[in-house]
Design a protein around this nucleic acid. Sequence first.
DNA 1: TTGTAGGCGTTATCAA
DNA 2: TTGATAACGCCTACAA
Lengths: 341, 341
Amino acid sequence: MPKSGSAPTINDVARIAGVSKKTVSRVINRSPLLKEATLQKVQKVIAELGYTPNPQARALALRRNFLLGLLHDNPNAQTVLNFQEGVLDAIRDTEFALVVRPVDRHSPDMLEDIRSFLELQRLYGVLLLPPISENDELAKLCRDMGCGYVRMGSAALDEAEHLVQSNDREMVESVIDYLVEIGHRRIGIIEGPSGFRSADERRVGFMAAMKRHGLEVPEGASAQGSYRFNSGIEAATRLLAGEPKITAIFASNDEMAAGAYHAARERGLKVPEQLSIVGFDNSPIAAHIWPPMTTVGWPIREMAKSAALKLIDPGSEGALPSTFPARLVTRDSVAPPTEGS
Amino acid sequence: MPKSGSAPTINDVARIAGVSKKTVSRVINRSPLLKEATLQKVQKVIAELGYTPNPQARALALRRNFLLGLLHDNPNAQTVLNFQEGVLDAIRDTEFALVVRPVDRHSPDMLEDIRSFLELQRLYGVLLLPPISENDELAKLCRDMGCGYVRMGSAALDEAEHLVQSNDREMVESVIDYLVEIGHRRIGIIEGPSGFRSADERRVGFMAAMKRHGLEVPEGASAQGSYRFNSGIEAATRLLAGEPKITAIFASNDEMAAGAYHAARERGLKVPEQLSIVGFDNSPIAAHIWPPMTTVGWPIREMAKSAALKLIDPGSEGALPSTFPARLVTRDSVAPPTEGS
DNA sequence: TTGTAGGCGTTATCAA
DNA sequence: TTGATAACGCCTACAA
C-alpha cells in the first residue's frame, strides 16, 4: 500500500494491481497493445489511488518537460494576458503548465538567451507572440533544438502546424470599404513601425482598398508611428495638419488611435462628427475612451488555445484551425463625414 | 569526454576533474566542507565544459521544482504583466522559471484546484496577487504543503517574509489632504467591492482623512463599484446626482475613475474645471484618457522582484523590504474647485 | 500482450 | 574532506 503522506507512485499502482511498472506505464501512455481486462484493472487502481504520474520523473526520463513556454515581447498587456488565458484553456486538466518569458527583441544576445533557456528548461514547446514571432531565426532555433513551436502572426509566417494567423489585411480592407461606404473619401493612415509584419499587412490592406476604390493616398495622409500612444499623437498631428483635410483616420493599433483622439481634441475636432477614427486590437482602451472606439478585434484567446493544442495534442479538433477571422467592433468613433468638411 | 551533441552532465565533470559525482554536487550546492583546491579544480572544469545542472534531475531528486508560480485572479492586465516582469528581474540568470496560473476565485473548488496544481508541479514557491492573496485559507494551504509563498497586498496580511505590501491607506489620506489643500470640501468616493482588502484600506484612508479635516461624507457622496469600468459609470452617476454637489471624486481604482469621466461628460461636467477626479493604480488608461488622470501608482515591478527574492534568496538585500511606498502621479484631472460650484 | 533490467542526472546516506 | 551506492519515479530496449 502507498506510504501515506506522499503521493502514490507507479510502483504502488503496479503492486496493488498485480502487474508490472511497465504495464502501468503503458496504461498511462495509452499503449494500444494492452488487453482490455488489464487496462480496466489498472485504470481502476489508478482511480482509487488518485494516482497522477510525477511530471518531474517523466521529464527526466523523456528529456522533455511538460511545460509550454510563452515567449513575448509585446507592448500590449491585455493581448499577452488574453493569450495566457487561452493557453490555460487548452492545458486545463492536463499535466502541462505554462511558463512565461518576456524577451528583449533589441538585445543582441536574445537568441542566445532563448537558446540557453530552452536548453535548460527543456520545454515541450513554445508559443511565439508577435512581434518576435516574426523572427525566422528564432523559429529555426526551435526547430534545431527539437522544441515544438507555434507562431502567432498576421500573415502566413510558417506551415499550418506552426501557425495561428489572423486575417489583418482583409480586415483592414473591409474597414476601408465601410468608411468609403458611409461617404469618406479622404482617409489617412497611421502606420505601425516598419519591421512589424502586422504593420505591413495593415498598411497593405489599407492601400489595396483605397486603390480598389479609386482613391488616392496623398503624401500627407500617411504617417508612421511606433505602436505607442505618444507616437499616435504625433502622427495624427501631422495628418491633421495636411491639406486637403482628411475626414477619417485608420490607425494600425488602438494605442495610436487613442493618441489620434488627443491630437483631434487639440485641434478642436470632434470625434466622430468631424473626424472618424478606427483602431485595431480591441484593447480595453478602445472601450474606455470617449467616445468608445470602433476597432478591429481578433479572437486572441481562441487563437491561443488552438496554438497550445497544436503543441500538446496536434491531432485534436481544436488544433486544426490556423486562420482566425478578426471582426469589426462597431462603437461610436465613426460617422459619415460632415458636409463641406 | 562528454558525448558531443548533448549537454555535459555531472558525470562528465566528475570524470574530467578526477573526482566523484558527489564532490561535483557539493561544488554546485556550495557545500562549505570542500578543500579549496578541489573546489577550484572542479569549478575550472565546470567553466570549461559550460556545464549546467539539469533542473529536471534536480527536481526529481529534491522533490521540488525550480519553478515559481504566479497565482492571480486579477482583472487588471497591466498589473499582472508588470508583476511578471518584476519576477523575471529577480530570476534572470538563475535556473528558476516562472509559471503562471490564473485562478477563478468564485469557483467552489478553487482551493482544491490549487492544491492539486501545487502537488503536481511541486513548485518552489508561489506568488499570490490580490485579491486572492487576501485568502487566508490559501496561505494556510501553501504552508501545509510546504510550498513557499509570498502575498502581495494593501495591508499587513502576513509576516514580513510572506508579504510585500503597499501603503494604500496613507496614500489615499495624502490624496485627500492634497484635494483639501487646493480647496475641495465636498469630496465623493467610489469604493471598491466589499471583500477586497484594497477597497477597505482605501475607504478607511478616505474616511480618516475627511474626518481629520473635519469634513463630512454625506450619504450621497459615497458609492460602491466592482472595480470595473461600467460600475464606475454607475457609481459616479449616483454621486453626481446628489446634493450638495461634490467637486471632486476619489475612485478606488483607475477603471472606475475612467467610468467617472464618462458619467461627468454625460452630465456636461468638465474635468477638471467642474469636477476633479483621482484614480488609483496608475494603469495605462490613466495616461491615455483625456484629460490625463491624476492617480496613485505603486511600484509593482519592484514589489514583484522583492517578493520573488523572498522565495529564492531570502537572505539577500533585495528580499528585505516588505512595505513599498506608493506615490501620487500628478496629471491633469485635478484642479481647484470653481467658484460657486 | 507483459515483464525484466537498466538508464535519465541529480542528491542523500553513510562509511572511509 | 571525499566517495561508493542507493534512491527519486518514470521510460526504453529487449526478452519472454
